[in-house]
Write a protein that binds this DNA or RNA. Structure first.
Lengths: 253, 253
DNA sequence: ACCGACACTTTACGCCATAAGGAGTGGATG
DNA sequence: CATCCACTCCTTATGGCGTAAAGTGTCGGT
């Protein structure tokens, strides 16, 4: 069996780390697009419609081009996704505060959480292996700067950084999923639950005795005002969980 | 705009909570398949080829049927995925140990981590809203039992449970992605890095000074023996991170 | 003036989920 | 026993997807 070489690594890397070099003069018609334009358009399509709604055709159409025109600038869709992925990470800036690592870490995590809610499609790109772009790398470096005052040994530091990142991603994904569901189905959290609860009780009448702790936990909700309850839960869980995680990190010092 | 009603909620729920009721006699030819058979086959396809390789056609073919034949048993692919999702969660059994909540929680998390590595496609199903199946519900209930000795207030408990689950999922995803990449590309972690490192150094010669902490952290690796290094990193990060998280939970008591 | 590299297009292929409609089956009813 | 029709399963078709292949026209370098 022959394996796809996953494109030319050199090509993708040089696009990821491209500077704004002057366009060298070459024979043939002048390019009328730029990779940056394509990336920006693709990002805006994905922000609005998710990865599912971002096809080469839709991006091309938004630029007044066919899908195939993009292939002169970008090797394939996978490469475009990698470029989009790293590109948006440039929005992140939260950095260390040597005097208050807890505050800095909280700020770092909250910035990332808001970032994922702005660009939820980022969470649906699974980088089979690290993408190695400059902006995500910079984000990681800043997380290490945030944690530097703790002076953790390397293996602990690796565990802590990945735990923080996964924690934020998981929470943001739950939040984003809840929002997307509401938008896609046109059904609020309450309507969704109202359409299921009676059937669930009929099909699993012993729910309360079979899952007593879960039942009690769900019942113990203060009524939510305004914000849909799945979203409110996700937000609250993020805040609480982050505090717990930070306490654990403090204990690891 | 008209929104898809996301299928009949009653229908999906009654399949999720179906017992083994005797097949009522109905006119027409006897069904030659069962929902359970279809689910089991779909799971085995997904285990081997991921969600991407699991199409209605492939599942049908494995059962000696066309894709369309499945639609007599299952409303659509989304419903089948929901059923598969809950079905595999029946494999999980880790439960509380009132005398040792830390040990029980560690065991619970490790079981889940191994489960995700056995069925990595589960992580690529994004339940827009909770699926509400019996087996995932049971898993959550057991997590609550594990944490019961801590007697946490409800909001804290919600934050802790989601933090634990997201932590395991994130780590397992990283591990599964690394494995899938190796399998799909036929390239080991070392080969992958060897094909990129020189280009990265050429394109970003200042990498070491621009990202000093990350560079130092990466350099501080004991050589890995046998296991591919991305996988080894993921495994180590899981173990360390779990300890940190548990310390944080202990502090929240 | 012309060559050839290049941007961009059209067309086509093989996937996907699934809608529509037709063929044959067999339990319930007369 | 004959009929009916709910039912399973099939074939065919639609509109999406990523992208291969090949054609058209452009324009800088020689």
């Amino acid at each position: 069996m022959v394996y796809a070489a996953q494109g030319d690594p050199r090509r993708t890397l040089s696009l990821l780390w491209r500077g704004d070099d002057p366009p060298e003069s070459r024979p043939g018609p002048r390019p009328t697009l730029t990779v940056d334009e394509i990336i920006a358009t693709a990002v805006s399509v994905a922000d609005a419609a998710g990865t599912a709604g971002m096809s080469m055709r839709t991006v091309g159409k938004r630029l007044g081009r066919t899908a195939m025109a993009l292939y002169t600038y970008v090797a394939d869709k996978h490469e475009l996704l990698d470029l989009m992925y790293d590109h948006v990470h440039a929005e992140l800036t939260a950095d260390a505060d040597p005097a208050d690592w807890r505050g800095a870490l909280t700020a770092w995590a909250e910035e990332l959480w808001e970032f994922y809610l702005r660009h939820p499609w980022v969470l649906s790109i699974s980088p089979a292996r690290p993408i190695l772009g400059p902006h995500e790398t910079a984000m990681t470096e800043r997380l290490l700067r945030v944690l530097q005052p703790l002076d953790l040994p390397s293996p602990t530091l690796r565990g802590v950084t990945s735990a923080v990142i996964f924690f934020v991603q998981g929470n943001a994904r739950a939040m984003a999923d809840a929002r997307a569901a509401a938008q896609d189905t046109g059904q609020s959290d309450d309507e969704w639950w109202a359409a299921r609860a009676p059937h669930l009780m009929e099909l699993a009448g012993d729910f309360g005795t079979r899952f007593p702790l879960l039942t009690r936990l769900e019942a113990d909700h203060t009524p939510s005002e305004g914000e849909p309850y799945l979203e409110r839960d996700a937000r609250a869980a993020f805040t609480v969980g982050l505090g717990v995680l930070i306490d654990g990190i403090a204990a690891a010092r």
